[in-house]
Design a protein around this nucleic acid. Structure first.
Length: 550
RNA sequence: GCCCCGAUGGUGAAACGGAUAUCACAACAGUCUUCGGAACUGUCGGUCCAGGUUCGAUUCCUGGUCGGGGCACCA
């Protein structure tokens, strides 16, 4: 529909003597203004040096012609020179019927058609438990992946976990200290890590032992140590996969530090010979001053690679395994500065790879309720957090599957409702009190619609039609444009906001209009069906489950 | 100290240089149970400060205030 409008506006612009003007077609913020608004007259007036309002009048008159009576019932000029278009009822009805008929296909786009896109997210560290912060990246990454796929891209998901380096040495030190050679759970390893980490800060002797362990792991010659390392790593990874499954995510590639070390070191040393990197105090560094980024160490004076070198190695590894047209990396925003240096170095080493790489940062997740807030070292694990929300949800939902769907929906909604990058305050009570502005609110609206559709019988019911389209119908037809924009701008929050509005419009419709047994039953059933498909597809794109009942 | 990011009703968020700044939560006042009230209707209330660019600024620029993050051998 938006395409039709866009074409008509372009044609009308040509007729009033202003071809090739770039303009916007959007949904006005106030429904009263119509279904679409364009700033074409404002932009064209500037280019032609004419009065905006005068040109807008002319454009509006021409538009009635280029659109045709069956599409637009009214074209008006408002404000400084906006041209507002109100769709004819027939056009709205047609769009809604289309949504209902397309079902799962409704909202699929082609704006990224044929493009190969790789998205990296989640990035947990083995030997440490995933904490709540990882939830944000995982949830945002999955939603973005789905949105981009929905626009026709061929997409691969990858995650890059730490499994080697000082943090791993700390965990192994902790395990050895306790005489554990067969770690059983991720939690056990997590505790060992915390102990190792504390000892590293407070006990100089322990620090030395841990540093030595770190080098021993890189060397890989101590078979007993490597055996413990392998076991611990496997348990961590199993736990990651469990959480990913719970969150509806999977990865086509699970990369680890240990996969990228060799290639990273090789590339950095090669760059050192070319003068891209420099020696400083025995370490290989990238001097960021020339590009106004932080100077950072890539290979330490002990000859071990840092995360920066591994990141360079990863870029090459990705290229080798699954070459893409665009590579998106999602991390917490505390990594932004570090990533700028890595990208600056990568631009010198492999300009083409650097150019297609885009970094997106996510904000911190903070918990509003005091009892859950973490104090020094007392990190809230992702698994524990999810479990707590599921238990809360179970109070209202005896069915364990539904309790889980509602809990996951609540968590995801809280994260996806805001722009990636800004910090998130998660209020446990609020997200599960579930009145408006929450995941379960959306799920509940959908459940109500499904119920009506389940009761409705084929061919029965009145065939009347309302005089004017319902507000919900005028909202439904914008769905494809909203998902396309959310994908383009890497902003799932735009879709979340839209779905909340959609749910609210549906609940209003539900409260004021009787569907079953009404004289307009068939028409209203179609509205319910179009809404259900729009909400189902929208929630699915966000990765939010759609329960059958609640 | 230097660098980056942010600041929108009591709270959390929208607004690709445009309209009377949108939405939800909370608060207050109603609906009284219908195809399931995890609902609906109404009221209240806001762009950090000072300049600048523009016909027009929440948006762009400069300065300030406040908050968050980063600043080489951790990730």
């Amino acid at each position: 529909m938006e395409e039709k409008i866009r074409k008509a506006v372009a044609e009308a612009l040509g007729r009033v003597g202003a071809p090739d003007i770039s303009f916007t077609v959007e949904r006005p913020s106030v429904a009263l203004h119509g279904d679409y608004a364009t700033n074409a007259a404002l932009v064209a007036a500037k280019a032609l040096g004419r009065k905006p309002h005068e040109l807008a009048d002319e454009l509006a008159r021409t538009l009635i012609d280029t659109l045709g009576k069956d599409i637009a019932s009214h074209v008006g000029v408002a404000g400084p020179g906006f041209v507002n278009i109100t769709l004819a009822r027939e056009a709205v009805t047609l769009a809604v019927a289309e949504a209902a008929a397309q079902g799962p296909e409704w909202g699929k786009g082609v704006t990224e058609s044929g493009k190969r896109v790789m998205v990296e997210y989640s990035n947990p560290n083995a030997f440490k438990e995933m904490h709540v912060g990882h939830l944000v990246g995982t949830i945002v990454g999955e939603a973005l992946s789905r949105l981009i796929e929905n626009e026709g891209a061929l997409l691969a998901r990858d995650t890059f976990g730490g499994d080697i380096g000082p943090n791993v040495a700390k965990a192994l030190w902790g395990l050895r200290k306790k005489g554990i050679s067969e770690p059983a759970t991720a939690n056990e390893i997590g505790i060992a890590y915390t102990e190792g980490s504390n000892a590293y800060e407070t006990d100089p002797a322990a620090k030395e032992e841990i540093d030595a362990l770190n080098q021993a792991i890189y060397a890989g010659t101590d078979t007993a140590l490597m055996e413990l390392w392998r076991k611990g790593r496997d348990i961590s990874v199993e736990e990651f996969r469990r959480i990913w499954r719970l969150l509806g995510t999977h990865f086509d590639f699970e990369f680890f530090d240990s996969d990228t070390t060799e290639i990273g070191v090789r590339v950095v040393n090669d760059g050192l010979n070319k003068g891209i990197f420099e020696m400083s105090d025995g370490a290989v560094i990238y001097n960021g001053e020339k590009k106004a980024v932080h100077t950072m160490v890539f290979i330490t004076s002990h000859d071990t690679p840092t995360y920066e070198a591994k990141d360079i190695g990863l870029a090459f590894l990705k290229e080798e395994r699954w070459s893409s047209d665009e590579s998106i990396v999602i991390t917490g925003n505390e990594q932004t500065g570090r990533f700028k240096t890595v990208l600056a170095a990568l631009a010198d080493v492999a300009p083409l790879v650097a150019r297609k790489t885009k970094h997106l940062s996510t904000g911190f997740l903070k918990l509003a309720s005091g009892k859950m807030s973490s104090r020094e070292g007392n990190v809230i694990t992702a698994a524990g957090f999810i479990q707590e929300i599921i238990e809360l949800s179970a109070e209202k939902n005896p069915d364990p599957l539904i309790a889980e769907q509602v809990a996951i929906g609540a968590i995801k909604y809280m994260i996806l409702r805001q722009a990636p990058g800004s910090d998130i305050i998660f209020d446990t009570e609020k997200s599960l009190s579930l009145e408006g502005d929450s995941g379960p609110y959306l799920q509940y609206a959908l459940v109500r619609a499904k119920k009506i559709l389940a009761y409705a019988s084929e061919g029965a019911g009145g065939t009347g039609e309302p005089d004017a389209p319902y507000a919900i119908e005028r909202l439904i037809l914008h769905f494809p444009a909203v998902v396309a924009r959310a994908a383009r701008e890497l902003a799932p929050n735009l879709l979340t906001t839209y779905l909340t509005e959609l749910a609210s419009a549906w609940n209003t419709f539900y409260a004021t209009e009787q569907v079953l047994g009404s004289s307009e039953e068939l028409y209203k059933q179609r509205v319910a069906s179009a809404f259900a498909h729009t909400m189902t597809n929208g929630l699915t794109l966000l990765g939010i489950p759609t329960p059958e009942k609640m």
